[in-house]
Design a protein around this nucleic acid. Sequence first.
DNA 1: CGACGAGTTGAATGACGTCAAACACAGTGG
DNA 2: CCACTGTGTTTGACGTCATTCAACTCGTCG
Lengths: 266, 266
Amino acid sequence: MQPLLSTTAHPLPDRSTRTASSEQASVPPLLARPVAQAAALHARIWHGLFGSPGPGAAELLALSAVARQRTVLAGRMVFERGEPAGSLMLAAGGDVALGWRGSDGVFHVERPVSGPAWLDQSAAWLNQPHAMDARAASEALIVELPLEPVQALLERHPGLARHLLKSLAREVHGLAMNTHELMHKDAAARFAAWLMQRLPAGAETGAAAPLRLCERKRDIASQLAITPETLSRLMRSLNRQGVISVAGYSVQVLDVAALRRLAESG
Amino acid sequence: MQPLLSTTAHPLPDRSTRTASSEQASVPPLLARPVAQAAALHARIWHGLFGSPGPGAAELLALSAVARQRTVLAGRMVFERGEPAGSLMLAAGGDVALGWRGSDGVFHVERPVSGPAWLDQSAAWLNQPHAMDARAASEALIVELPLEPVQALLERHPGLARHLLKSLAREVHGLAMNTHELMHKDAAARFAAWLMQRLPAGAETGAAAPLRLCERKRDIASQLAITPETLSRLMRSLNRQGVISVAGYSVQVLDVAALRRLAESG
DNA sequence: CGACGAGTTGAATGACGTCAAACACAGTGG
DNA sequence: CCACTGTGTTTGACGTCATTCAACTCGTCG
């Protein structure tokens, strides 16, 4: 029916391979190498969380001192909705999916996260339970910052507060954008925006380098709050319009300008 | 057509009266009374923002010292999207609508806020412009906390950081709930949840006291991300099912349990 | 091979938006 | 008192977008 496009199913993205390589890049050295280098790696994690300019070396060291870490195997829960949250939670490395598990046992991804990144920095401050489930998509290094010690830290390192406030503010900003998108954009615009987000920064016009989807399409759909069927139809429609070119899990954006127009229509 | 229900239009809620009375209650004394009592009122404002237990007296005093205030007349903009945000912004009293002005000049309310409450506590920390427009719905007392002095304050009063973090965390929590609702609930469920929220705390089952809508229905609709037409049909449908009883701007919830079921379906 | 899960496709259904008309009320000026 | 106007809401007809349900294909794993 569409001879120019292979509509056949394609193999799933190889999660185990991807997992392994992403861990090679960021996590395992932390566990395997001598302490001095581990500290340098900690610094890189904090940098990912706080951006730059981040907290000073002394403050980061103090943070590292109160941090408790553990690894969570792929597929296991990091924390569950309703569980009391005594700590600020973050993923130092690996991939974690924030979402919720339906009554049928299926996990719905609402926000995929790839370390280093915060998992829940708000529940602990409010003395409330976690509001979502968090499930490791790959083996992940989870860091917990227990609230009490962090508060004590703020007394001794007031400069740290500014960075914690900043990262919370970043989350507010992101959530507000997200809400706005959901309220005012249709599925096509949201998907276009999703694609734009993972376009390498360079590509401003014309065609861009091929892009590889590294999640199941059903998970992409659930981030966009649409059904897998609708996502499939959307991709086919954009493909037919010549905006993107789809082959299984690899997508090439052919017309960045058109995609941007779509993403901003709303 | 519906002899049991008056379906005729009803006069708008009297905004000017409502405005005046809400200001009588919270704002004007601050401007009119001696300094000692003004401080007490400041305390009440901070309490509204931070909850309890809030910051200590010394910290509140320091906050008050760096605060700059101004009043904004009903209908004027408090700040606009894109405007640089050098301060944490809050409404000490009066009603402010957060939203955005469409290209046609119509203002779409996304979140109504009634002082004391934060208007924008995130943009300033990120050195970013405001992400939304804010428009005074009634005459409002606006307080700005310029970022620089607040940061200096954090050095001297580390305990303050905890409360700022907490209020930001509260906003994260609220936004996350909102996002979740938009993603997974249909219009009827969202409206039911909206009604539940403004039900007095006492009413758990059966019928509840009549409720008076004090915004234009089109503004309620835009908070729910639906059109006024859909809201009208929803109210009629709930009325027909006997869950609520509608007469113009006054709504009585007849069956709290059914409403809760609706609100949680999704 | 057969079972299973992921993805795709089509038809039917439903939810919600759009458009246009009518109505209610407030305020205005005769 | 009565038209007249403007804004807000209601209602109906209709269209569009997205979900649902049910097949069907492909690839993997046993």
